[in-house]
Design a protein around this nucleic acid. Structure first.
Length: 577
DNA sequence: TCCACCCATTCCGCTTTAGA
DNA sequence: TCTAAAGCGGAATGGGTGGA
């Protein structure tokens, strides 16, 4: 059998995976899954994209590879074999235990002194820097950057004092965990190395260095066409993982052996929900609901608020209680929220914390500006001051409610939409300052305030001239979600239709009749990808597409107007009792 | 005076949730 | 893919107490 890296990692999940591929068949084309994973993380939301749009999105990832390639040539010299060379990515394979293991090396870079092998990831150094640890209030790095290359601190300062050593080893251990955010990239590289070093292409007489190429989270673009070093930072960071991947070779060899055993054994025994299922992530096992059919059923224990996959595994598997209604008194009393959810399902109770809801509403000042941003995050920054994956706001919707309940869907609505890919930050700021007037008080209402507040902060940084005005808007932001979820041990509002969730996707159908069904653009991710693919949209349809985007964004803020009304009505009903 | 022990508080890392 | 906030639980810290 030929086993690619992706296939190998899937088979390694659990003993049962191989049997599923035999009996159920592949549920998702591995190639498609890779594209989806990189670009959106949610397969459902991409269904309406055309092939041309998919190609554009895929190209964004390829651009990162090209930048990495350019940077490798500049930094390390030599001659690179990559996407753009005749053969494309360098294919390698190795025969072990009667199977052929294959890998595609993103960049192979032979120089006079040795060979560099580089795996490019379209993710940032953010998680890498989170490995850093604190001792006595002082932060210590796990990777040290020298001459634009990150190396393990042990390779630059080998003698660490004992207390540091202990903490360091703990942080370092994450690099060996293939399910860890950084570790999975390291493991990928280690597998590439395993295959490469057993292939006919490998020349053991040469020195080999293994790098991960990531986007540098500390890079701020200078707005130029090409990516040069700006303030000592380059958009690509190279991580030297030669030592770690060397140590990982025995682990990979053991895992390869393990996969062969899984294939030979045809083990289809009952499998508990484990971390390797990657539930709730873009890398979730495609057979998750085959192993755990209860996950498809409404009101299962996975809906319990604040529960982890371990809780789900314990209830559903160990204790055979897959439904919230199955929970006994002891389970329910563990968390007030769990009891509330149980009551909502079993007794159909509707939870309303009148006092907290009143308090929330009394804090609102009118006019209330119902605000929503749509934005797009490009892996490679496009405009001056932007970082990799920085969210660029391209659309704003605003419903203005002058007095409680006084808001017309059309008359009190204003919007901004960028119709091309030029830097629109100034336009967005001008729009906000023109329409949001807080001089006589007022509230800026959003759903999930972290998002809009971060964008306002970035806009203030990008356009310092209006920093204080933007800060003023930012200070006036109130999260409508707080009126539902609240801050206490129990939410302010709950009913079983929420399924334990407070995203707009669940709240809207639970409390209103507003629906996004039948809309060409019906979620934020689709709006963002549509913006990203402007250049390939058929000009004959372009106006139609812009209309669809406007309709969607307008509906988002109108939904908030409606939900605020729902809150007020819940109070009124009670006070007339 | 020292130290073991208990309990309460704080710190820290990890996970979950939400937005695009 | 990214980010921040919040919650959780375990580890670390620190104060008080009592016995040697």
């Amino acid at each position: 059998m030929r086993i690619s890296k992706t296939r190998f990692l899937d088979l390694l999940r659990c003993p049962r995976f191989y049997d599923y591929t035999q009996s159920v068949g592949d549920t998702i084309d591995p190639l498609d899954q890779d594209i989806l994973e990189h670009l959106t993380g949610d397969a459902e939301d991409l269904e309406t994209l055309t092939k041309a749009q998919e190609a554009v999105l895929n190209g964004l990832h390829e651009r990162v590879e090209r930048e990495a390639s350019t940077w490798v040539r500049q930094r390390l010299g030599g001659h690179t074999i990559d996407l753009d060379t005749s053969g494309g990515q360098h294919h390698v394979e190795r025969s072990v235990h009667g199977h052929v293991w294959t890998a595609e090396l993103d960049i192979l870079n032979p120089t006079d002194t040795g060979v560099h092998v580089i795996e490019v990831k379209a993710s940032t150094t953010s998680e890498l820097s989170k490995l850093d640890f604190k001792l006595n209030g002082v932060y210590h790095p796990v990777f040290v950057k020298n001459n634009h290359v990150h190396k393990l601190v042990e390779e630059t300062a080998p003698y660490l004092e004992t207390a540091l050593q202990e903490k360091y080893l703990k942080a370092r251990k994450n690099l060996f965990d293939r399910l860890h955010k950084v570790g999975r990239h390291v493991y990928d590289l280690a597998f590439q190395r395993f295959v490469y070093e057993g292939s006919i292409d490998y020349d053991s007489a040469k020195a080999h260095t293994y790098y991960l190429a990531l986007l540098n989270k500390d890079y701020h673009h200078d707005g130029q066409e090409t990516y040069d070093v700006v303030n000592g930072e380059h958009v690509i960071s190279l991580i030297d993982l030669t030592t770690i991947t060397e140590e990982l070779q025995s682990v990979v060899a053991e895992d390869v052996r393990q996969v062969v055993d899984y294939i030979d054994q045809h083990d289809n025994r009952y499998q508990n929900l484990i971390k390797a299922c990657q539930k709730g992530t873009p890398r979730a096992c495609p057979y998750l609901t085959q192993c755990n059919p209860y996950l498809k059923v409404d009101y299962n224990v996975d809906e319990l608020m604040g529960s982890s996959y371990k809780d789900t595994a314990r209830f559903a598997h160990q204790e055979s209680k897959p439904m919230i209604a199955d929970l006994d008194e002891a389970d329910r009393s563990k968390k007030p929220k769990w009891r509330m959810q149980y009551d909502a399902i079993v007794h159909d109770t509707i939870h309303v914390d009148q006092a907290s809801l009143k308090a929330f509403l009394s804090h609102l000042e009118y006019p209330v500006y119902h605000l929503d941003f749509e934005s797009f995050a490009a892996p490679l920054p496009r405009f001056k001051g932007e970082k990799p994956y920085q969210q660029h706001v391209f659309q704003v919707s605003l419903h203005i409610e002058r007095e409680a309940g006084m808001c017309d869907n059309t008359l009190d609505h204003v919007e901004f939409l960028a119709e091309d890919h030029r830097d629109c930050r100034h336009d967005v700021v001008a729009f906000l300052l023109e329409h949001i007037d807080l001089s006589a008080g007022g509230t800026v209402l959003v759903w999930h305030k972290t998002f809009e507040r971060e964008r306002l902060k970035e806009l203030a940084l990008a356009i310092p001239k209006y920093a204080s005005e933007l800060q003023h808007i930012r200070d006036a932001v109130v999260d409508l979600k707080d009126g539902f979820l609240g801050k206490g041990a129990l939410p302010i509002l709950y009913k079983k239709a929420l399924h334990g969730k407070y995203s707009i996707k669940f709240v809207l159908p639970a409390y209103t009749s507003i629906t996004y069904e039948g809309m060409a653009i019906n979620n934020g991710l689709l709006a963002a990808t549509t913006y990203a693919t402007y250049p390939v949209i058929d000009p004959a349809h372009f106006d139609h597409v812009l209309d669809a985007m406007r309709t969607y964004c307008k509906q988002d803020t109108w939904a908030m107007v409606t939900l605020l009304d729902v809150c007020r009505n819940l109070i009124e009903q009670n006070s007339t009792d």
